[in-house]
């Protein structure tokens, strides 16, 4: 059987907020190592890779590997029935066709449970090669979200140019052009830091719509890491973490726009 107890059930709500725009349904793969999800959006432009480590759960038991196909809109409905600080237990019998979510209030005087039908999803997994990226940018996730939101007003594409000077985000459209430049800084407040690890300068162009969807994960982590190399997909990574627990990560891969 599978049983996983998450002290902060709100974490799963935030994870759902971070993937529900991109995916209608997805398989959660359970193993001894934890819960993993890998799925592409319908148009095969982006991929979500979620890893929640077994160690991040208060209790974690997975007797045999199983894949739980879930409709994410249904899962959102169920998670809406919980409070952010509820303790969440997810459980399923081997070969079951339902998964159960149990919510316990912090003081223990309210317990609710919801069964959700599982789906048979024929999901293809992609092998993602280990890559040394030419540019790795670490920046505050709120800043990333704001930049992407602001520039999306201009055009359907955003160019990200990374060089020794820093990072420049640009977008052009009917109303004009927007450029936002971030210098590397070493401000005393490390939370505001933008750090660039550069092997060679890279400029790539991406669809604004997907970057905006990725930015929905900003609630999971104060930092975001963008990794780029010429002519390969961008990686946008958010740690899934609180001050006292490292749950894992959510990574988004996004295919670049390429000159015709």
């Amino acid at each position: 059987m599978f049983e996983a107890r998450l002290a902060e059930g709100g974490i799963l709500k935030k994870v759902l907020d971070a993937i529900k725009e991109l995916l209608n349904e997805a398989s959660f793969d359970c193993s001894e190592a934890g819960l993993q999800l890998q799925a592409m959006d319908n148009s095969h432009v982006s991929l979500v890779s979620l890893n929640l480590r077994a160690e991040g759960f208060e209790n974690y038991r997975c007797d045999r590997n199983m894949s739980m196909g879930m409709n994410l809109a249904s899962l959102v409905k169920i998670m809406k029935c919980s409070a952010n600080d509820d303790v969440l237990t997810i459980k399923a019998q081997d070969n079951a066709d339902v998964v159960t979510f149990v919510f316990e209030s912090k003081n223990g005087d309210r317990v609710s449970d919801f069964d959700m039908k599982l789906m048979n999803l024929d999901q293809e997994h992609l092998g993602i090669p280990e890559t040394d990226y030419a540019c790795v940018i670490k920046m505050p996730s709120n800043e990333f979200a704001k930049i992407v939101r602001d520039l999306s007003q201009f055009g359907e594409s955003i160019a990200i140019a990374c060089s020794k000077q820093g990072v420049k985000f640009s977008s052009t459209g009917d109303i004009g052009t927007g450029n936002i430049k971030l210098a590397q800084n070493s401000s005393a407040d490390s939370d505001d830091k933008v750090v660039v690890d550069l092997q060679e300068p890279v400029t790539l162009t991406f669809a604004s719509r997907y970057l905006n969807s990725f930015a929905k994960a900003a609630g999971l982590s104060e930092k975001v890491t963008l990794s780029m190399s010429p002519d390969v997909p961008l990686v946008v990574e958010f740690k899934v973490a609180t001050s006292d627990n490292d749950y894992g990560y959510i990574r988004y891969y996004l295919a670049p726009k390429i000159e015709d």
Binding site: S43, H44, V45, S46, E124, H125, S157, A255, I258, E259
Partner: peptide
Amino acid sequence: KAKQSSLMSFFQKK
């Protein structure tokens, strides 16, 4: 105009 590429042209199916 830049064209959207597909992830499938970068990553192989497992």
